[in-house]
Amino acid sequence: MLVSERIGQFFLDTGDRLEYTEFGAGERFVVLLHPQLMTRRVQQPLARTLASQGLHVVTLDLLGHGRSDRPADPPAYSVPAFAAQVLALLDHLGAERAVVGGTSLGANVALQVAVSAPDRVRGLVVEMPLLDNALTVGLLAGTPLLLAARFAPFTVAAVRRATRAVPRGVVPFWAGVWLDSCNQRSGPLAAVLHGVLFGSLAPSAEQRRSIGVPVLVVGHDADPLHPVADAEMLAGELPRSRFVRARSIMEWRLAPERLDAEAVRFVLDAWDVRRTRPRRRGTAH
Rank of each mutant, 00 (worst) to 15 (best):
L135D: 14
L135N: 04
T136M: 05
V137L: 07
V137M: 13
V137Y: 14
G138D: 02
L139R: 15
L139K: 11
L140I: 12
L140V: 12
A141F: 11
A141S: 13
A141C: 04
A141P: 00
A141L: 11
G142F: 09
T143S: 12
T143L: 15
T143Y: 14
P144K: 10
P144D: 07
P144L: 09
A149Q: 12
R150D: 07
R150E: 13
R150M: 13
F151E: 11
F151R: 13
F151S: 06
F151A: 10
A152V: 12
T155W: 12
T155G: 08
T155S: 10
A158E: 12
A158Q: 12
V159Y: 02
R160S: 04
R161W: 09
R161E: 10
A162R: 14
T163G: 00
R164M: 05
R164S: 14
A165F: 03
V166G: 02
V170Q: 07
V170C: 00
V171P: 04
V171D: 01
P172S: 04
P172F: 06
F173S: 00
F173V: 02
A175K: 04
A175D: 08
G176T: 03
V177W: 03
W178Q: 10
W178C: 01
L179T: 05
L179A: 13
D180S: 13
S181K: 11
C182V: 01
C182D: 01
Q184A: 12
Q184V: 08
S186L: 01
S186N: 00
A191F: 11
A191V: 06
A191P: 06
V192N: 00
V192R: 08
L193W: 03
H194R: 14
L197N: 05
F198H: 14
F198L: 03
F198K: 07
F198A: 02
S200P: 06
S200Y: 01
S200L: 02
L201F: 08
L201G: 00
A202S: 14
A202V: 12
S204Q: 06
S204P: 08
S204G: 11
R208P: 01
R208S: 02
R209S: 14
R209C: 04
R209Q: 14
S210K: 13
S210L: 10
S210C: 09
I211P: 07
G212D: 14
G212K: 07
G212P: 07
V213N: 09
V213Y: 03
V213R: 10
V213A: 06
P214F: 05
P214R: 03
P214S: 07
L216V: 09
V217T: 12
G219Y: 08
D221V: 09
A222E: 15
D223S: 12
P224S: 12
L225R: 13
H226R: 02
H226W: 00
H226K: 01
P227E: 06
P227F: 04
P227Y: 01
V228R: 15
A229N: 09
A229P: 02
D230W: 10
A231Y: 06
A231I: 09
G236H: 01
L238F: 00
L238H: 02
P239Y: 05
R240K: 03
R242A: 08
V244D: 06
V244A: 15
V244Q: 08
R245K: 15
A246S: 15
S248Y: 06
S248K: 03
I249E: 13
E251G: 08
